[in-house]
């Protein structure tokens, strides 16, 4: 396989534009190397990016936290800044794989790999995160909720990379938070399903609620119909049979080697119910 090591970000785009067809950007390598082993990646060209320091690190501006695409989960979990500003986000990621994998895996690689089970995506969706996409001549910001278009498909153009993840600083302030990853064991497990949620009550009524589901559709997404139904409701008077009905229309779980459809429907309903009531 052809291999390139750019000396800078402009060099990266120069190289990338010269390569026609499919190519991979090698960050932590934890997905790419498993895909090479399993013959999913054959001899497509690889551009190494993991050494580009401009794409690493966590920064704050007045109202935004910016996480460089190459930031590892270990750096996220240990960040003092995130502990202060986005503690729910930080704590939820402690269940990612294992401490070893957390050292290697990058946040941008997790999103760009596009798996419907990516741990971080449902969390970022309820936090209304955006992605900063870099290409040769422009930088654009897109909402994460508009990034995915299908199973492992997204709006990233051929010579465009994820540069950073942007999260509003007040994204979790004042909300009750919820994150549950269901897997078959505690460590090193790929999710059977994931639910992330934020809710704010006033006088027992749901003033605002955000729910995102992972591994329950072709790509992780917010459950807008359910959110709409729940907004304004008194939590003691919610008709949960209706919740279940809406949920069943909004998620399309499949049966695969990790779990089956019925289990995923039942457990996601149970989780959402406990999120709403607790």
């Amino acid at each position: 396989m052809k291999f390139y090591k750019p000396t800078s970000i402009p060099d990266l785009f120069r190289i990338s534009e010269e390569i026609e067809g499919k190519k991979y950007f090698l960050a932590g390598g934890t997905d790419i190397n498993v895909q090479i082993k399993n013959g999913i990646i054959k001899d497509e060209p690889v551009i190494f990016i993991n050494h580009l320091n401009e794409l690493k690190g966590i920064k704050e501006s007045e109202d935004i936290i910016l996480i460089g695409t190459l930031t590892t989960y270990k750096e996220i979990i240990e960040s003092d800044l995130l502990r202060k500003v986005l503690p729910f986000f930080q704590n939820s990621l402690k269940s990612f794989a294992s401490p070893i994998l957390q050292t290697m895996a990058t946040i941008g690689g997790n999103i760009a790999n596009g798996s419907p089970t990516a741990d971080v995506t449902p969390l970022l969706l309820v936090l209304d995160a955006k992605l900063k996409l870099f290409s040769k001549s422009r930088i654009r910001e897109v909402k994460l909720s508009e990034f995915f278009t299908g199973y492992k498909e997204f709006i990233l153009k051929a010579n465009e990379i994820i540069g950073a993840i942007l999260i509003p600083k007040n994204a979790e302030t004042g909300f009750d938070t919820f994150f549950e990853k269901v897997g078959s064991r505690k460590s090193l497990t790929i999710a059977k399903l994931e639910i992330a949620g934020l809710k704010r009550l006033k006088n027992n009524k749901i003033e605002e609620i955000k729910i995102a589901a992972g591994a329950l559709n072709e790509y992780p997404r917010r459950l807008h119909k359910l959110e709409e139904f729940l907004t304004g409701k008194d939590i003691d008077r919610i008709d949960f049979s209706q919740v279940e009905e809406i949920l069943n229309r909004e998620i399309t779980p499949i049966s695969d080697l990790r779990s089956d459809k019925e289990y995923r429907l039942q457990v996601s309903f149970n989780l959402i119910q406990s999120f709403i009531l607790n």
Binding site: F3, G29, N33, K74, L101, T103, M104
Partner: peptide, 14 residues
């Protein structure tokens, strides 16, 4: 830092 060397490439050690 601990890493699993089976899913790293030698470039990662440069």
């Amino acid at each position: 830092k601990p890493v699993t060397s089976c899913i790293l490439n030698v470039i990662h050690a440069d």
